[in-house]
Amino acid sequence: MTGLTEDDIALAGEYALGALPPEERAALSRRAETDPAFAAEVAAWETALDPLNAELPPVAPPPAAWRGLEKRLFPTAERPASPWRWLAAASGLSAAVLAAVLWLGQPAPPRPEALWISDMASEDGSVRVAALYDAARGEMRVSMGGAGPGANRDFELWLLGPDGGAVSLGLLPRDGQAAMAIPEGLRGAMAAATLAITDEPEGGAPGGVATGPVIATAVLRRI
């Protein structure tokens, strides 16, 4: 059972209603972050009370609201001005450190035959996937650990581009190891790329567009 008392259940309802004083509200919000049973109870209340919102007729926001939002989230200044910055952001290293590593490690242009690895794990740790990308062969070797996909489901591997698009790299094996050939056209984008795994219907995302929940994401790191 959840281990929640009657009082906890009522508190979760009061939190979902939103009328509590700010301090108490903040305390319950922190509790929901660390107490999954309480968080689930809050979510159950939120779902139960949600039909009340049907009393509000939708109101179209002015077009300026979307433009303002785009400007806040995707300012053009933040576009990768130099590949260093983008690489740095994707690999989680500072641009200076990354530049130093690359300069010290390889005076010549980056060797194309580099190996890249990535450890991906779902939030609850039940799904673990190790990936090794061999740039010389254009091949991704993956090794499945932990739980596989459910019945009639497949895990699909995605490459996330810097512009926000996701390109499918194919389906992951249900267990064991597999080698996945990376299409010629994508090989240039693999360095320090961000990968993601989603849970899709059997056979993969219909129309090449991800539909399922994201199981894990991780960055390919050079070894």
Partner: peptide, 16 residues
């Protein structure tokens, strides 16, 4: 639900 999954993958068209 599908759009939210794609937004989590940083898909800007899905976000719009």
């Amino acid at each position: 639900s599908a759009l939210l999954a794609r937004v989590a993958l940083r898909d800007r068209r899905a976000f719009q």
